[in-house]
Amino acid sequence: MSETGGIVFVVDDDEAVRDSLSLLLESASLQSQCFASADEFAEHYQGGMSGCLLLDIRMPGKSGLELRDWLDQQGAQLPIIFITGHGDVPMAVDAMKRGAIDFIQKPFSDDELLQRVQQALESEAGDRADRAEADRVRANFETLTPREREVMQQVVAGRVNKVIALDMDISQRTVEIHRARVMHKMGVRSVADLVRLASFLDK
């Protein structure tokens, strides 16, 4: 498995292409799974899969672009690299505008393909880490009382305790207590960290 922990899912109707891609990925210590059609991959698909998709555009049955649209409807987060032997500029532009992370023409060089796959895996791993962080922040935020949330909002807005106390019509000491609880529950030590975490709540 790659350092990013993701699997490269290869979807291509050409068995020779699947075999050569599988060997190439294995040679780079990347784990792969191959599928002969978009429908076969769709049956295998489960939410939360991590890695990237190497997807042929033109296949019998559901096309690569149709599979992309289907995955989008499922809320899939897998980055997609389209591969095609018969591409043109409008097709490449359409694929990229529909959310592909890359588009490669056959025949491709091994190095080029591996480089782009690594980029896709790293990008997906980064996105996955961001989502996990956002989930953690939201879970911590849920533990705050309404009063603590109000104080957090004011702290994040850059207000000092004195101003917050006046605004909320409470004592400065009470603000300090709420503020300390907010910092503890959110797992941060500085206002700068709190501001950074608050940005996840807007996403």
Partner: peptide, 20 residues
């Protein structure tokens, strides 16, 4: 005048669209 890879690069690096 453009090729596929030039078009893909343009879109990867932020162009919204490309029309031949």
């Amino acid at each position: 005048r453009t090729g596929i890879q030039a078009a893909v690069s343009a879109l990867k690096f932020g162009a919204h669209d490309l029309i031949e």
